[in-house]
């Protein structure tokens, strides 16, 4: 194994361009899990991002929130303005692992890892985040909602570094994040939903319900239509147009659909008149 330790973005992208098989590492909370047993990773070249001071910290720009790629969950939890403007970022951050994970894990690492159970990705997608990808070829900005094309497959090419995540400064009304796991703390989600009421209508994002975190367009259309919904079961078919949850070690597909329908129904009854 070898590790490259660039100190500037230019150096980092030059390395990734010359060695596209090299693996960027930020907080290591995905890559270092069970490290002594992951011998295949010990053969690799890593690019340590921790010295890229330009990627640290978050800032407000023209009303938008711009998080450098090294922004951690804890950085976000310390920012009170985020709690007011994008409260789901706080709600999700508090539920990612525990404090020891929150101080190290980055939002960009959550996006880069691309797990279908990623809590950070779910709330970022609900807020219509844009992912800034930088390489020697230039800068690409991709909407997170279109970022994933399959299980752990994304539009990021191996020579690209995620350099920032940008959230448009839109005023939201109702904002809801639900995570259902095997226990309350320190659990990977079995079912998650992030929902916001934007000026243009509802945005609904499902987590752990498909090979990728996913926008649920059919559910959104029902919420926006004013179509009467009088039970959680009335949402099952619509949910199945958007996602096809699987049976796995954490849960079953059937359970996932039932629980997601109940979360939607009971949470939205207070906010949507057509839900009775």
């Amino acid at each position: 194994m070898s590790v490259l330790r660039p100190t500037t973005i230019d150096e980092a992208v030059a390395v990734l361009s010359a060695q596209p098989e090299a693996i960027p590492i930020a907080g290591g909370t995905d890559l270092m899990v069970h490290w002594p047993h992951r011998l295949e990773l010990h053969e690799k070249t890593f690019v340590d991002l921790s010295r890229l001071t330009a990627l640290r910290g978050l800032r407000w720009q023209d009303g938008d929130l711009v998080m450098g790629a090294l922004t951690t969950y804890w950085d976000v939890l310390l920012d009170e303005q985020i709690g007011r403007r994008f409260p789901l970022l706080h709600r999700a951050a508090r539920q990612v692992g525990a404090v020891q994970i929150q101080t190290r894990g980055t939002w960009a690492g959550n996006v880069g890892n691309g797990s279908p159970a990623a809590d950070g990705v779910a709330v970022l997608m609900a807020y219509d985040a844009m992912v800034e990808l930088t390489s020697v070829r230039g800068v690409d900005v991709v909407p997170l909602r279109d970022f994933y094309t399959g299980y752990k497959i994304s539009h990021r090419t191996p020579d690209q570094l995620i350099t920032a995540i940008r959230l448009p400064g839109i005023p939201y009304r109702t904002q809801i994040f639900e995570k259902v796991g095997a226990r309350k703390a320190q659990a990977i989600s079995k079912i998650g939903v992030a929902m916001v009421e934007a000026p243009g209508g509802w945005v609904v994002v499902a987590n752990s319900m498909a090979p990728t975190i996913r926008r649920c367009r059919a559910v959104e259309a029902v919420l926006n239509s004013g179509h009467p919904i009088s039970s959680p079961e009335a949402l099952h078919d619509t949910i199945l147009q958007d996602v096809h949850p699987i049976d796995d070690l954490r849960s079953t597909g059937e359970y996932r659909v039932r629980v997601m329908a109940r979360l939607l129904y009971h949470d939205l009854r207070e906010h949507i008149a057509a839900f009775s």
């Binding site: 590790v3 290591g28 909370t29 270092m32 490290w35 340590d48 921790s50 020891q100 190290r104």
Partner: peptide
């Protein structure tokens, strides 16, 4: 758990070079 730059972290997940 150790404190890294004053914050609690799991030292089993921190590469030494960091």
């Amino acid at each position: 758990t150790v404190l890294l730059n004053g914050l609690p972290v799991n030292s089993c997940l921190v590469p030494s070079y960091q």
